[in-house]
Design a protein around this nucleic acid. Sequence first.
DNA 1: GTAATAGTTATCGTATACGATTTCGTACTT
DNA 2: AAGTACGAAATCGTATACGATAACTATTAC
Lengths: 222, 222
Amino acid sequence: MTETAVESAAQSKSQQAYAAVKARIIEGTYTPGYRLVLAKIAEDLGFSVVPVREAIRRLEAEGLVKFERNVGATVSGIDPTEYLYTMQTLSIVEGAATALSAPLIDSVAIARARAVNEEMRECLEHFDPVRFTALNQDFHSVLFEHCPNPHILDLVHRGWNRLASLRSSTFRFVPGRAQESVREHEALLQLIEGAADAETIEKAARQHRAATLDAYLAQAKQ
Amino acid sequence: MTETAVESAAQSKSQQAYAAVKARIIEGTYTPGYRLVLAKIAEDLGFSVVPVREAIRRLEAEGLVKFERNVGATVSGIDPTEYLYTMQTLSIVEGAATALSAPLIDSVAIARARAVNEEMRECLEHFDPVRFTALNQDFHSVLFEHCPNPHILDLVHRGWNRLASLRSSTFRFVPGRAQESVREHEALLQLIEGAADAETIEKAARQHRAATLDAYLAQAKQ
DNA sequence: GTAATAGTTATCGTATACGATTTCGTACTT
DNA sequence: AAGTACGAAATCGTATACGATAACTATTAC
């Protein structure tokens, strides 16, 4: 997650720009629809436009920004359809990542995951959605620590990044879903501890994500 | 797949460069390990280096190219580990794409898919691996025509592109696997026709890809 | 003969500059 | 008053130029 000063000093400007803009999107400084003017960003960072352009293009490839020819870049949106696509895809890749990782998770990691989940439970009381989401990613990150397939893990992270740009939007926090989520985490841990077969674990992990989508859809229908 | 002349005329040079280099990788002109010198490609295409750079970066994001700072870009490799990752990921996303698409496939599409599969069967007799692979993609493309989730479809295509760069490498064509593959296609069509449940279809489609990987692994072990 | 080093070349990374395209505002017409 | 046409400003897209970095080569010391 964090990088050493040495590494970041050796980074190219295009990478720095990428990281900077991405961070601003994820932390919510640049909200969906925000117009990313190349010259402006370049000036902010003290770079020229060329590396910024490259950074934007990379973010586009990850789905975080939309870049139209001769028009410009905007932080990509909170379109419900896009949300559905992203959640559905996440459900699949998280399911796979969990099932692949499960046999490699040791009891120490389980304990850490459980501790994180406990924090999440506490988090519910003073209603802190931002922290809850962060902890949720931590929880799953612990499970994915030894994921044997980095490609799949990368897809998970891309999905998370997309969702991050929806921060504090209407999509988040369907009432009651957070509580359920914490319970499902515990159930998942028990499956992993009990060395359940891959299919069962995959199904549970997939369902865990899908349930959040379903909760949103049910609410949206009203 | 194909674009109109008008569209391609309106394309930016960076997009043209992207398409051109990608095509050369996929058709095998640039083989894995090939050194992509920006200035050279730019000269070939009659562009300057800036749009070429952008194109290379995009290809990097898709995993087709490796781009090292101050060193340069190379067509990314045929590392067996990478092959495993890609095939495993494809197995998952193709499985999901097939299951999601299945309810939306009509009898006309089934017939078309069957025709393609028949061509594949014929293809086996005069041993044409390149054409066989192309037809295989056609077969699955027919099934994915009405895939309700474009994100997942995109992941499938990315996987295919990565595999394309392995053309005529040691990974392809494990003896006997092609025949099996044609049989599995027919079995898959029958499941879809019979409106089998999503889980069954997903499992079959996933297994279809996984079997090719297994065949390779079994051969590699010897 | 080999290893270390200095110098050369090739290539990358970024800044600057300018033409191309879009967008927005204003004036004019109906 | 609404719509259209024109022009100005903003922004993008690409070319060119040059400094920075790494790879290569030749030379020298041992």
